[in-house]
């Protein structure tokens, strides 16, 4: 009856912007970003990537309410840069990281497949690498 539409979880509403910035009025070099239609997947990932940057002093996110499909990300940086620039850098780094992961996975899979078919016809084939110490 009055249930919200299922697609509200992931389709942007009319006139809604994916990302908005509110500069912090009390702190220098700080801003709050609101990202619509995203959740912990992106929020936590961004937070972690931002924290790995030396110029970021603070990065944190929250999902304000389970029925509001957005995340709020707060960033404070050192004076020589801006939160926007740092966020941009985080996106670039993440894209690079994901491409690396995909490429490595596909290369390894190719070799795995090769071994799988030409040397073993059994269904399961294990191999381990362990050099932990």
């Amino acid at each position: 009856m009055n249930a919200p539409d299922r697609f509200e979880l992931f389709v942007l509403g009319e006139g809604q912007k994916k990302l908005t910035i509110t500069p912090d009025t009390k702190l220098p070099n700080a801003a709050t970003f609101t990202i619509q239609k995203e959740d912990h997947t992106v929020g936590n990932m961004l937070r972690m990537q931002l924290l790995k940057n030396k110029k970021v002093l603070f990065a944190g996110y929250k999902v304000p309410h389970p029925l509001e499909h957005c995340i709020i990300l707060k960033i404070q940086t050192t004076p020589d840069t801006t939160p926007e620039a740092m966020l941009m850098e985080a996106f670039d780094e993440l894209i690079k990281e994901f491409s690396t992961i995909r490429n490595k996975f596909e290369v390894i899979f190719f070799f795995f497949f090769f071994f799988f078919f030409f040397f073993f016809s059994i269904n399961i084939f294990f191999f381990y690498i362990f050099n932990l110490e």
């Binding site: 912007k17 994916k18 990302l19 990202i35 995203e38 992106v42 926007e84 966020l87 941009m88 996106f91 670039d92 993440l94 894209i95 994901f98 491409s99 992961i101 995909r102 996975f105």
Partner: peptide
């Protein structure tokens, strides 16, 4: 991975 990269690209574009 493709979905994630796409997400990052959309966000990057709107920030730009």
């Amino acid at each position: 991975v493709k979905v994630l990269i796409e997400k990052c690209k959309v966000l990057k574009r709107s920030l730009a």
